[in-house]
Amino acid sequence: MSFQSSLNVSVSGMTAQRQRVNTISENIANASTTRTPQGGPYRRRIVTLAAVSNDRTFEEELRSQQRSLDTATEVKVVGISQDNRAPILRYEPGHPDANEEGYVAMPNVNIMEEMVSLMEASRSYEANTAAFNATKNMAQSALDLGRNV
């Protein structure tokens, strides 16, 4: 079913964007975390997206080979990696995690950067829901075909 593959693609987009929002929230929430189980300050995390052709049944594969068309490309989160930028040093001698010179290693999270990514992710999510609704509308009108003949 071709409509189903369109819907699946939109769902994969929504899942990927939600994962992105989760990671961004994690970064914002930990923007001033100086202690982690691995030691040292929290490190910013980044979601990596990749395009993948969706999983298909044998029949679908055969049909797409016949038509030489492989139209649906889903998106997937292929990994969450750490930002390797150096921690930001802030002068705060009273802090328990300050070094001998009075500097505290703070997470390499830039709130501005995170807010921009957050907005981008939420807009992308909306775009995917719009695409989902458009496809649903098309399927609905096909379903109504011949109802009022």
């Binding site: 819907l7 939109s10 987009g13 395009a51 889903e74 998106v75 992308s124 775009a127 695409a131």
Partner: peptide
């Protein structure tokens, strides 16, 4: 829909 889903890929 694939284009829209992959707009950040």
């Amino acid at each position: 829909t694939s284009n829209i889903a992959n707009k950040d890929t």
